[in-house]
Structure formats: C-alpha cells, structure tokens
C-alpha cells in the first residue's frame, strides 16, 4: 500500500535517486503551475516576473532530472523523467502542486517554497555529492531573487489594505500545513544527511523558520499553528491536484511519444 514502505532497505543508489527526484520534481511542478499565470497576471510586468521564475525553476528541474537519470542508470533522459512518469513516481513536495488560486495564494505558495529552496540550496552547495553541489550553487542565485520577489509581494499584500491583509492571511492559513513535509525527515532524507549529501532537516527548519518569521512580521501576518496531519508528496502520495496537472503537462508526450521540435 504505502509506496515508500518498500524503500527502507533499498540500496543507497535508489535512496539518492529519490532524494534528487524530490528536489527536481518540486521545481518541475511549481514551474508548471507558474506557467499557467502567463497572460493572466494582474499586470504585464508581473506576467514577466512569474514567467521568469517559472523558467528558472524549469531550468533547475532539468539539471536535477538529468542527474537523476544518470543515477538511475536506465538511460532515461530529463524529458523521459518529466513526461513519462506516473503520479506515484513524481516526488514533489505537496505544496508545489497546490492550485494557483488568486494572486495572493500564488504569492504565499511561492514565498514558502522560495524560502525553503534558498536554505536548501545554500546547504546543498556544500554537499559531498559533487553534482548536487554544482547544480545547487547555480540554483541558489536564482532562488535568492525569487524570495526577494515573493517576500516583497507578501509584505505589500499583508501590510496593504484590510482586504488584501485578510485574503493573504487566509491563503497563509490554508497553505501553511503543507510546509511541514519539507522538514519531516524519512529514511531518504536521513540517508542523505548521514552521507553529508543533504542537510539535517531540523537545522534546515530552524533557518527556514527564522527567515519566514522575519517576513511575516514585516507583512503583519500571523504565523499559523503547525498541525499534526502530514502530507507526503515527496513519497509519491499526492493531493487530488497533481493528477490534473500531469494530464496537462504530459499530454503531448503521452499522445505523441517522442515528439520533438
């Protein structure tokens, strides 16, 4: 039943592969979500801003997925991994697949992920896994801009009008529970930390928390309580939203296998 249960005694190679896929898929799925804003953002300048972030994330996903394909050793390319895996094999954090909602929902989701990716990539840049370190060193510069963008919007909306404050607080309350998954270490995370390939998640949580708290304070937003319920998108158990996203994202390659430009 539990997709992750079979992996507790998996060889290290498979554990590292899953670890890399989690990072890749979170960027991939969030890029797909952000892409849907093109043509719909509140101003043409924001259209470009969100599209730039989406393209950065897609670029990160490509690098991580290529590395995952090498780790897997079955000759699958980044495209094969992005477009031909089924839902239980996609290992993004659940937060990334949450629907765009209104602009405030998107900004809250973006900020929570951006803050996580900055802290994660900063640590991965010192990974004992040279490939991870190399990709993260490039990605962290992008993530630092992303969090600057999303944090400044969060402050504008939180510390804006009564309506914008109320709406963005409600977005935050709704999306907050999904962040716990980032820091809820399982065997894959523990194996990466033990090798020095990935960070200790308790330490990562503390860094993320203080970054998030500082922005929430400036935005006059209240930090929601943590809930006991956990989501496990990173183990392939997703919300009802991912299947719909994949059916759109993967449609072309599923209908016309191998189609290229």
């Amino acid at each position: 039943m539990n997709a992750a249960a079979g992996n507790s005694d998996a060889p290290q190679g498979d554990s590292r592969l899953r670890y890399v896929l989690r990072i890749a898929d979170t960027s991939l799925v969030l890029a797909q979500r952000l892409g849907a804003w093109v043509g719909h953002a509140p101003a043409i300048e924001e259209d470009l801003g969100l599209a730039n972030t989406a393209l950065d994330l897609l670029g990160q996903a490509r690098l991580f997925l290529s590395y995952a394909g090498e780790l897997e050793g079955r000759g699958r390319s980044e495209d094969d991994l992005a477009f031909l895996r089924d839902e239980p094999d996609i290992l993004n954090a659940t937060l990334a697949e949450m629907p765009n909602g209104d602009f405030g929902d998107t900004i809250v989701r973006q900020f929570l992920v951006d803050a996580y990716q900055v802290e994660l990539y900063e640590r991965l840049a010192a990974s004992t896994d040279a490939r991870l370190a190399e990709i993260a060193a490039k990605a962290v510069k992008e993530a630092r801009y992303h969090v600057r963008y999303s944090a400044s919007w969060l402050v504008r909306l939180g510390d804006g009008t009564d309506e914008s404050h109320a709406r963005v607080q409600s977005s935050l309350d709704r999306l907050w529970p999904y962040t716990q998954e980032f820091f809820d270490a399982d065997e894959v995370d523990r194996a990466a930390a033990a090798d020095g390939a990935g960070p200790d998640l308790a330490e990562l949580r503390a860094a993320w928390s203080s970054r998030v708290d500082a922005v929430l304070a400036e935005a006059t937003l209240a930090r929601p309580r943590d809930l006991a319920y956990r989501w496990y998108g990173k183990q392939g158990r997703h919300s009802e939203h991912l299947g719909h996203l994949l059916s759109e994202m993967q449609y072309l390659q599923r209908s016309h296998p191998g189609a290229g430009w």
Binding site: E45, L48, G49, N52, Y149, S152, R156
Partner: peptide, 11 residues
C-alpha cells in the same frame, strides 16, 4: 521604486 527595479530586472 523597489518594485520598479524588480520589474526592470525581469523585463
């Protein structure tokens, strides 16, 4: 101005 710099960077 801050938003203008971000928009200018993006555009």
């Amino acid at each position: 101005a801050r938003m203008a710099i971000e928009h200018a960077r993006d555009l």
